[in-house]
Each structure stands twice: as C-alpha cells, then as structure tokens.
Design a protein around this nucleic acid. Structure first.
Length: 306
DNA sequence: AACCTTCCCTGATGGC
DNA sequence: TGCCATCAGGGAAGGT
C-alpha cells in the first residue's frame, strides 16, 4: 500500500541513479498493468533520456524528452533499481512480520516491466497483485494537467493551505475517513496515513464533516502533513510489500500509532486500539483519544488538554 | 451527495 | 496434505 511517503521514498532513492540516464531497452511482461499499447511503450521510450523524476500524489512521473512516463504502484507495486555491480539476492521473509525483503532480486514472474538504462542499470517494476498502472503521455503541460485534473491538494506545496482545505470541506458531509481516502480531496493519503492523521487530530473516523468543530478541522489540516512527513523521514511504512528503490523496506511500521495496532494499547493513553470497517476499509483508532461524540463540556473544562 | 457493490489480482490464512 | 472460501485493499465504475 504505497502512499505518498512510500512513493516519495522511492522517488528520492531512484533520482540520483536515473536522472540523466537514457533508456536502452524496454521489456514488457504481463501487459495488464499497461495503460498504453505495449508496442508503443517499448518503441517510444527507447532512446529517451530521463530528465526529471517527480511525484504527484501517489504517482511517479518520469519526465522524458518527449513523454511523461507515469507509474502508480497500486497495492503491491515495487519499483527497484538493479545495479550491475550488485549481485542478485533471493527473497527473504521476515519470521515475524512476514515482510518479503527483496534487496536486489532478479526478475521473476511478477516483474512486469524492465527498463534497461545507460550505464548498465535497470529499472524493474514488480507487482504481484497487478493493481499498478503504467501510463505514457505526450509531454505537454496541458496533457499532464488534464491527467491529474481529478487529484486534490498536494501536501507540502502552496496548493495545500488552510483556505483551500476549509473550502474543500464545505458542503460535504461524508464520514471524515472516507474523505481522507478520496484522492480528489488531498492527494497521496491512503489507508495507513488517514488513520494516523485522524489519531493525531483526535477525530473519530466516522465523524461527519459537518459535525467537525473549527479547531478539529485545523488539527486535521496540520496532522496530515505531519504524519506524512514522519513517514517520509523514516523511509516509508513496510506493512507487507513496500520496498524502496534499493529493494529495502521502510522503518515506519514500528512508529505507527494506530494502523495495524488493534488489540494493542494506545501509545498516548493506554486504551485498547480497535479496528472497524469504514467505507469498506479497515480502520484503526483509539476509542478514548478519538471519541465518537464530543466529550461533555464539564469534562472538557477539567481537561487541561482543552 | 452519499453510499454501496463489484471488479481487477494474488498470496496468506483458516476450516474441514 | 490438499482443497476451497475468504480476506486485504487503491481506485474506478455503475447502481441506488
């Protein structure tokens, strides 16, 4: 479940290796993930130079000479760099977490795209569940803008500001967890960081947008970039499949406050973290820190946190 | 507008 | 040991 921090981790890891490199050859495997004709992808990409590698929400955007080559990692997508001087290693399964650590693996039946670059390096796109997507767009500002037209605010950019945030909440009344998963609201937030942000802002995931107090909206506005930032700082969350461009897992799993911690004590108050289903998604929260209803005024008055 | 279901896909898991 | 059912989940699509 690569979300913004995981995709950003991949981007940062790959950037120094791929910037300026040219595509020597493109080999396609299972073409289900391709949103472009395989023949066109193979033919067009060859010879083009990678001028920049950017990110928008959960999308990776390779800026080529004549095209934007765009990837979405879906649920289990792994984009890794294979270096000629580094020997391939077998998959290693962590005995406790079950995490498949790949380091540098040789292409297998789940490797659906291989991009050989100048200098002998190779980009491998591996995706067991094939929810990933590969696009090829004409390099044009208008085409790119159109492609991302349904994406919402981008955290860490001027587009993410309090005014836009409050504006996007106006006239909505969905459960707040649903809205956080909606990429047209804030781009890049997925199931893990949605739960983490709501915990940070102390908001119950099933609260309706209209019921949120102004201070709660402010708290959420600040919590979103905060939890994303922490995720990036620790190299992403490896819950199952995530690995960075070097094939290594992230270190953020153990820092999560609620996601995947059902049955365990809240790190803030000690109450038991619970897991429910909201909008068909597993949702984790602390029932004490994130009460469904606002605590009684009298209780609030005696609570130093308020 | 909000919400639900279905689909895509594979590996892990649990029941028998 | 094996076989089947179930589940997870990002995102789009279609129905209520």
């Amino acid at each position: 479940m690569p979300e913004l921090p995981e995709v950003e981790t991949v981007r940062r890891g790959l950037l120094p290796h791929v910037a300026g490199a040219s595509v020597r050859e493109v080999v396609t495997g299972d073409t289900k993930i391709l949103q472009v004709d395989p023949e066109i992808l193979r033919h067009e990409l060859r010879g083009q130079q990678i001028q920049a590698l950017r990110r928008r929400g959960k999308y990776l955007v390779f800026e080529m000479d004549r095209h934007y080559w765009i990837l979405h990692l879906g649920m289990t997508g792994q984009l890794t760099l294979r270096l000629p001087e580094r020997a391939d290693q077998p998959f290693v399964r962590h005995p406790v977490t079950g995490l498949e650590r790949t380091v540098q693996h040789s292409p297998d039946r789940h490797t659906h795209l291989r991009i050989a670059l100048s200098g002998g390096k190779e980009l491998l796109f591996r995706d067991t569940r094939k929810f990933g997507k590969v696009f090829l767009l004409e390099r044009s500002t208008e085409v790119l803008a159109s492609f991302f037209s349904r994406l919402g605010m981008e955290p860490f950019t001027p587009g993410y500001n309090l005014h836009s945030f409050l504006e996007a909440l106006r006239n909505r009344n969905v459960r707040i967890k649903s809205l956080l998963l909606d990429q047209s609201f804030v781009a890049g937030v997925g199931n893990i960081y949605a739960d983490e942000a709501l915990f940070e802002a102390r908001i119950h995931p099933e609260r309706r947008v209209r019921s949120l107090r102004r201070w709660e909206k402010l708290a959420l506005y600040e919590a979103i970039p905060e939890v994303l930032r922490r995720g990036i700082d620790s190299g992403g969350t490896s819950f199952r499949d995530f690995v960075n461009g070097d094939g290594e897992p992230g270190n953020h799993l153990e820092e999560l406050k609620v996601y995947g911690r059902q049955g365990e004590p809240c790190r803030r108050c000690g109450a038991v973290i619970v897991k429910i289903v909201v909008t068909q998604r597993g949702t984790h929260f602390c029932p004490a820190c994130q009460p469904r209803r606002r605590v009684h005024r009298r209780t609030e008055a005696t609570n130093p946190e308020n």
